[in-house]
């Protein structure tokens, strides 16, 4: 997009502009480009063509597509964190989650549909688990939402299977030699959710308080939930 023909609203774009945006000489834009600043890629053109045809031919409606996008947007790591916190505080629920993840999620009104099956894998003192999809980007999307960009990167997908301890160390996770590291390559119909270990010092915490400790990466296996003892004491 040319600088002199844009018409978007600069007051809410987070760029920190508080002036009237009068295009005074010397005005410098921040380096972040608009989302549609570059030409569409071949795949973007293909997606738009197929989507438009599907709607025109009555295979699906624009409303159905919008509803599916809304559904995906409603799935975020915070939803997964609630599930983990429930498992930490309710051992019967944890047993059900490990035995039949889909049914346990339904108890919490989370429906993951029928496109893929989920398995929950528990980290223990003996085994630290980490998930990858070397073939593409399989991920428990219907629980955690869209995967992070690094999860889909060639670097993560190729390196974590060869040198999992090295990659985990780059994420700040240092697994001792006495603990097995187990990599799960989600090659087929199953999606893997990691149940991290509940941090020490959280005895008696409420589910809500525990939920805040569970990050997206902890449910992939590239982080370990920790209590910020300094902050907790304040």
């Amino acid at each position: 997009m040319m600088h002199d023909d844009h018409d978007h609203d600069h007051t809410s774009d987070g760029h920190g502009h508080h002036h009237g945006h009068s295009h005074e000489p010397g005005h410098v834009h921040p380096p972040q480009k608009d989302h549609d600043a570059s030409p569409m890629s071949a795949y973007e053109v293909l997606e738009e063509a197929v989507r438009t045809l599907l709607v025109e031919k009555g295979v699906m409606t624009a409303d159905e597509i919008a509803a599916q996008i809304d559904l995906m947007d409603s799935r975020t790591p915070s939803l997964g964190a609630k599930v983990i916190a429930r498992a930490w505080t309710d051992s019967a629920f944890k047993a059900r989650l490990l035995a039949d993840t889909k049914a346990a999620l339904l108890e919490m009104n989370i429906d993951i549909g029928t496109l893929a099956e989920f398995r929950t894998i528990e980290n223990t003192a003996d085994t630290h688990n980490v998930v990858v999809c070397t073939l593409c980007s399989c991920y428990p999307k219907l629980l955690l939402g869209i995967p992070p960009a690094w999860y889909k990167s060639l670097a993560y997908r190729s390196r974590v299977v060869v040198d999992p301890r090295g990659v985990l160390a780059e994420f700040g996770v240092h697994v001792s030699g006495g603990t097995e590291v187990r990599v799960h390559d989600s090659t087929a119909d199953l999606r893997y959710l990691i149940l991290p270990r509940r941090p020490a010092g959280t005895e008696g915490w409420s589910e809500d308080r525990l939920t805040a400790l569970v990050t997206r990466d902890a449910m992939i296996g590239t982080a370990i939930p920790e209590v910020d003892h300094k902050a907790a004491a304040e």
């Binding site: 097995e180 799960h184 087929a188």
Partner: peptide, 10 residues
């Protein structure tokens, strides 16, 4: 890594 490290795939 240690000899006990594993990888699983479907």
């Amino acid at each position: 890594g240690p000899a006990s490290d594993h990888l699983e795939a479907d």
